[in-house]
Amino acid sequence: MSRINQALRELQSIDELAGGGSPVHRFSPLSKLLVTVGYILTVMSFPKYALSELFLMILYPVCISVLSGIELRRAVKQVRYVLPLVMAVGLFNPLLDRAVVMYLGNIPVSGGFLSLVSLMMKGVFCLLASFFLISTTPADRLFASLRKIHMPAGIVTLLLLTWRYITVLGEEAAVMMTAYHLRAPEQKGLHWRAWGSFIGQLLLRTMDRGSELYESMQLRGYQGDFPAVRQDPFRLKDLLYVLGWVGCFIVLRKYNIAALIGRGAGI
């Protein structure tokens, strides 16, 4: 199976995971959305050298993994596609920020290196949290909850279409790669000379298919709003879920638990 096909299949299987029935799946989409946003904001707000404090934020994905029955390994595997991007962002930090800020044993560690590591951790954590959000909440219900917090219908539609188009784009790419390999069997990847026309073709085909998809929505009465397939009431337990997690995040952010534990153990 080609790499594109593989990625595509993984993406589609997220939709299937989202149909599960674990305790996490049963909380309202809105509550999970709020918790995820809270988590991402908290993670992003950590200072750039605060590695040990930041590390404890892994508690959230670990808990969700246990409660939802979706293995952490699975999540990490999924996140690998985006990881190089995350790394690229912080790649120059070690070069720019060379001041030594701590020693590991007697190896000097520069501020730039620390901030690179923390940036990567932040990236991975946020991706993990997003993965757990979409793999415990069906896409359409998630988008319906965006409408509930008064996100403009246009933006929600755009997001939903993007979600659907990614698979369309991937399918077209897979078909074209297959056709290419059948005619250039001795070639491993795509020859650089073919890249331009390949991408051009891919965009054209995707746009065609995308517009047909959109036509099908219009023909079935789409006016800019997805009908709520399921009513997802926001119950007391959803409120508690949000408050509980946000409380945890605040504690983790405000107090250096790792240091507290260390100090406690030291006494």
């Binding site: 939709d15 149909g19 359409d140 006016q223 709520a228 397939v229």
Partner: peptide, 19 residues
């Protein structure tokens, strides 16, 4: 493939009537 855009057959069938 172009016609159906919801995850399951059931949800796709609901789309137009609810709209």
């Amino acid at each position: 493939d172009q016609q159906m855009f919801m995850p399951t057959v059931y949800e796709d069938m609901l789309f137009a009537p609810l709209n």
